[in-house]
Amino acid sequence: MSARCLVATLSLLVLVLATLSPTTMAGDNESLTASYRAKGQAGLDRLQQSEMQQACSGPVGMEVAADVATKIQKAAMDGVVLPADGKLLGQWEKGQKIAQTGTGMQSSDDPATPNGGNCYACHQLAPEEISFGTLGPSLAGYGKIRGQSEAMLKYTWTRIWNSHAYSACSHMPRFGDAKILTEEQIRDVMAFLFDPASPVNK
């Protein structure tokens, strides 16, 4: 076999394998569903990946292709729902409670109890709170630093609703898109970030 022929054969093989990979994934995931059982509100359907989840499950350090990233971001952006009444800010006191609450949607959680936002797991918020995580950027002084322009409010709402609108493989949950928080809860979290009286801005 000539070298050129070998290269052509190999390229074809790679192409065939790439086409086959979704089938392979489905096969592998049969063993995955056999490893879990439905419990409480967590059904086996949760093991099925969305296109975004599948694209963002590569080995650590692997970037998604630019066209895939653009597609994910556009789909996320198109799905953002802004409040019909245009009111983006609620009560910061309620938002603070949501930021402190870590439960919600676990198999052990009561679905009748409102979900938390668990913002402190990953972000610094009010400087007075010392128990904060560092997986996400610090949001201390969020509103004081950025002001309350319409563009800034909408950007922040979008980040909370579906962070993938700005970074394709963001690790932040899609709080609005995945119905983790209600519109009213997101308003309250927004107020916690922006209200000059909120401890975030003290």
Binding site: A42, Q49, Q53, Q54, C56, S57, M105, H171, P173, A178
Partner: peptide, 10 residues
Amino acid sequence: NYRAGPYDFS
């Protein structure tokens, strides 16, 4: 590395 579920966690 498998991301899944309503929170997209891996």
